[in-house]
Nucleic acid binder design. Structure first.
Lengths: 168, 168
DNA sequence: CAGAAATCATCTACCGTCAAACAATCTCCG
DNA sequence: CGGAGATTGTTTGACGGTAGATGATTTCTG
């Protein structure tokens, strides 16, 4: 092995061939597979948000529960699950944690003793206000690659995919 | 539990139509939380695709592996993992299944015996062609809510989020 | 050349989600 | 009234994905 050009790495042996194409195949993939592009983008956004929120007092689902309770009043876990698109069995632990932190109360629904009436406490309102305040810059960071118009377009398209009628 | 203290009443104790706001809270949520809209849309799309592909010979990740091998030639599992954004440990099982079905071969890379050279077999090429043919209508169904222009826009925005340069 | 550090594939432990089963309760209908 | 079926919250088990450690091999550094 005196004069043979030492291939520095497996992927780019000689720099002249398809190494570039191979290392950038993901870009080509996203053109063929919108579902994969969407999925990977969602993962990237969620990861960015979770990183910034790690160590904070609320997880994303917990924040969403407080937010909905503030918007529509006391709710059963079933209603929270349906509207937030969180599975019922996951909602159990979510409300458990919020109740343990004193941010919501679980009261029995007066007319349907199967269901709870999950209610926001004053502490919960305060925690929600703080979480809402902290959320804007986190979202701005996660969507920093998009202009405000593009971000609005993305929301419009995802709403169409979810069969949500356009905003009034 | 004879005389429990009377809990606060629900937000909509008697009015039947007050549920309108409560039953449609998800629409309001998507306006505040683009990350949630994106996440739920991705789940909906993935679920629609998985449903149509269930029973088929290839899963989505397996299809992606064959597709990349056909596009760039033999690859190490590491390269497949990086470009397809699939974790290395998951790629193991993915290639295992493809090898078991005879669609790829695992050969040791001649210059780096740590790595495999995963190679498409003739059967793999045939399976890929069939899967590619079956994919178009599945994607059309999953993205049926969007016009072709909107679908292209969605791809463009997700590519920006993933920091992929615009297509040539 | 020898040892340190990095890399590739793999394995294992862990976490979060989903489907199914369950008890308690409500609604419907004869 | 009373039983069948649906609904609410919960638990359980299976599944998929991720992080960290491991063994084999390569590359780097002195």
């Amino acid at each position: 092995m005196a004069t043979a050009p030492r291939p520095a790495r497996l992927a780019s042996p000689s720099r002249a061939d398809d190494g570039g194409e191979r290392r950038r195949y993901f870009a080509a993939l996203t053109l063929d597979r919108p579902d994969v592009a969407l999925c990977r983008a969602t993962t990237a956004v969620a990861r960015a948000i979770d990183e910034q929120l790690s160590g904070g007092p609320l997880t994303v689902p917990q924040h969403l529960v407080l937010k909905m309770l503030a918007a529509v009043g006391s709710c059963s876990q079933q209603e929270l699950s349906e509207q937030l698109r969180i599975d019922r069995s996951v909602m159990v632990g979510c409300v458990d944690a919020l109740e343990g932190a004193g941010l919501v109360r679980r009261e029995r629904h007066p007319r349907d003793r199967r269901a709870y009436a999950v209610t926001l406490t004053p502490d919960g309102s305060a925690a929600l206000a703080a979480a809402d305040r902290a959320m804007a810059p986190v979202l701005d960071h996660a969507f920093a690659a998009l202009t405000p118009d593009e971000r609005a377009t993305l929301v419009r398209l995802t709403r169409k995919l979810l069969d949500v009628p356009p905003a009034d």
